[in-house]
Each structure stands twice: as structure tokens, then as C-alpha cells.
């Protein structure tokens, strides 16, 4: 039994070598520690991970790449999960963290045990870990910049925020505030919390709209643009420029509005496939590559020109996605090294 497995392993290795060039990580195992799976973005993130890593395992790049998700989105639960992963002997742990700081103890333990820790999206601040961060502030700032290019006169903005108290919400909000400072013709007339959910955003916007002056633009955080559009449509007001967040229903609504009355906007978010970028970065670190500790994820931005194309490649009801390759990871690493 054992020798058969080993033979198969060697055969797999031999098969992989010519294609990969580097196969020093073929006996390494990588685990994904994920804190939440209860929305479509996270589901797409897990699916991308599954798709890319399954192929990598088959090609013998790594020996295993298992995904684990905690049930309750609790930092304590995730810390325990990471401790289990240390005991199970994984060589690298890729983390989407419930908290930037609460997992630092467990992450430090993993580092001390010689395990490579790569955090992404929900990053950890522990210095021994790698961080693939999203520049959320820039995401907020770019929204206002786009609106300024469309509305040189400025006007009233409605800001839809995410879940109060979460780091990402504060960051995007800070970026939007910075953008408004750069373009003082804009004024944030009201801010509501949409919790990154279409139905919550719809309810919050519908509730505040009657008290608002004319709204020229809506700045969002992703997962809330369609709900905002529904609320504006129901109120009978003029449709403002709503910045979208790459969801399929948002882009489809945008396409329809464009066909009907030439409506134009922009959509930006992070591709859920960022999990695969983190996978390749972990693989590169295991491979001995010199990887800077702080990396930045590129945005996935959809403009009027490429709307149709992105929409066609997005799964109905899902999120616009990109799966990253080893070469993409190398490009991100070399960009950060400069």
C-alpha cells in the first residue's frame, strides 16, 4: 500500500517536473482558514480556491490545499481552528481573518512552528505573516473621482456604508471622505448602513430618501448598489449615478438602464478569486522566493466599455471574478518589491 502510494507520488512528481520547472513545493500542504461563507462573494471565493488548488494538487505543485470555514465568524473560533492546523502539520496557512488583531496570537504560534502564514482580504497585523491587502481607501476615493469626472458641478451624494464597526467599512468611508475633500463641490447629504446586503441597503435607502434633497450620486461598498437602485426607482426620483460593486444583478440592471436611457456608471470591487492569489503567494514563499510582507490586490474595475464582456463571463447571480495564476502572483510580488 505504502509503496504504491509512494510510487504514484513519484510518478506524479516526474510528470509535474517538466511542466512546472520548479516543483520544490510538491510535498508541501497548504490550508485555507476562512472565517465566513454566508454570502455570494465568499461562496465564489471558496469555489475559486477549490478550482485552482484542485488543479495545482493534480499537477503536483503542492500535495494538498484544504479549505476550512468557521461556522460563526468568531475570532476565538478561528484561532482554535488555526491551532488545529498547526497540530495537523500544514506547511502554510492562508487566512481570511475575522479580525486584524485577534488572531495575532495564533498566527505567531504558527510562525514559531515554522509555518508560512499568508493573510488576504481580512488581513492580520502580526508582523511574521504576509498580507495581501485591499486598498479599501483607494476604492472609496476612486468612486468620488469617477463621480467628479461625470459631474463637474458636484452635487449631493448618498453614502451607503457597510456593517458598522467592521474595519473595511471604516476604511472605505475614510477613502470617500478623502475624495469628497479633494472635490469639495460634492457633499455627503446622508449616510446609511446597508450591511453589504441588497435587501438591507434597499430598506435603509427607502427610509431616508423622503427627507433628502436631490441626490446626484451614490457611493457604495459593494453588494448594495442594486438595492439602492430599487429604492430610488420605487420613490419615483431621478436615478442618480450609483457606483456598483460587480454583482451580477447590479451589472444586469446597469446594462438594461443603459439600453433604455443611456445610463452610465462604473463598478469596482475585489475579485473573490483573490483567494487563489493568496494560494500562489504562499506557494512562492514555500518555494523560497523572496516575497515582501505587504502586497496589494489589484481592483477589478468594470467600465461602460467592458460591461458586456464582464457580464457575459459572470455566473448568473454571482460576482464578477478573476482566478489568478502563478504568473499573476509573480507580477504582484515583483511590483511590491520595487
Amino acid at each position: 500500500m505504502i509503496s504504491t502510494t509512494r510510487l504514484l507520488g513519484i510518478a506524479g512528481l516526474c510528470a509535474a517536473v517538466p511542466f512546472m520547472g520548479l516543483a520544490d513545493t510538491s510535498d508541501k500542504s497548504i490550508a485555507l482558514s476562512n472565517n465566513y461563507a454566508g454570502n455570494s462573494w465568499r461562496q465564489a471565493m471558496l469555489e475559486s480556491w477549490q478550482k485552482v488548488t484542485a488543479q495545482a494538487v493534480e499537477e503536483g505543485v503542492v500535495s494538498a490545499a484544504d479549505a476550512f470555514t468557521t461556522a460563526e465568524n468568531q475570532a476565538t473560533e478561528q484561532a482554535a481552528q488555526i491551532q488545529n492546523m498547526i497540530l495537523q502539520g500544514y506547511d502554510a496557512i492562508v487566512i481570511n481573518s475575522a479580525s486584524p488583531t485577534a488572531l495575532n496570537g495564533a498566527v505567531k504560534e504558527a510562525c514559531d512552528a515554522g509555518i508560512v502564514v499568508v493573510s488576504f482580504d481580512g488581513i492580520v497585523t502580526e508582523p511574521c505573516a504576509w498580507r495581501i491587502a485591499v486598498d479599501f481607501q483607494e476604492m472609496g476615493r476612486q468612486q468620488v473621482e469617477y463621480l467628479a469626472s461625470r459631474l463637474p458641478e458636484g452635487g449631493n451624494l448618498l453614502e451607503i456604508r457597510g456593517l458598522a464597526g467592521v474595519f473595511v467599512d471604516d476604511e472605505i468611508h475614510a477613502g470617500i471622505a478623502a475624495g469628497v475633500q479633494e472635490h469639495p463641490d460634492f457633499k455627503v447629504a446622508a449616510a446609511v448602513n446597508g450591511d453589504w446586503a441588497q435587501d438591507v441597503a434597499q430598506k435603509a435607502v427607502a427610509g431616508v430618501l423622503p427627507s433628502l434633497p436631490d441626490i446626484a450620486g451614490v457611493v457604495t461598498q459593494g453588494g448594495d448598489g442594486y438595492g439602492a437602485a430599487q429604492a430610488f426607482a420605487a420613490s419615483g426620483r431621478d436615478m442618480p449615478i450609483i457606483v456598483m460593486g460587480n454583482r451580477h444583478d447590479e451589472m444586469e440592471w446597469w446594462k438594461q438602464a443603459h439600453e433604455e436611457n443611456g445610463y452610465e456608471t462604473v463598478s469596482l470591487s475585489i475579485a473573490p478569486g483573490v483567494s487563489t492569489l493568496a494560494f500562489w503567494v504562499a506557494q512562492q514563499v514555500l518555494d523560497g522566493a523572496d516575497v515582501p510582507k505587504d502586497l496589494t490586490v489589484p481592483f477589478l474595475k468594470v467600465t461602460q466599455e467592458d460591461l458586456e464582456e464582464v457580464l457575459a463571463s459572470t455566473q448568473a447571480g454571482g460576482v464578477a471574478n478573476v482566478e489568478y495564476t502563478l504568473d499573476d502572483a509573480k507580477a504582484v510580488i515583483s511590483d511590491a518589491a520595487q
Partner: peptide, 16 residues
């Protein structure tokens, strides 16, 4: 009704 009202069911739609 909520899923029909808000344009589709989402995994986090009942949270609140």
C-alpha cells in the same frame, strides 16, 4: 416575499 421584493434570495438576507 422578501426574496421576491428585493430581486432574489441572498444567503444573508434574513440576518437582521
Amino acid at each position: 416575499l422578501l426574496a421576491s421584493f428585493s430581486g432574489g434570495a441572498a444567503l444573508n438576507m434574513g440576518a437582521e
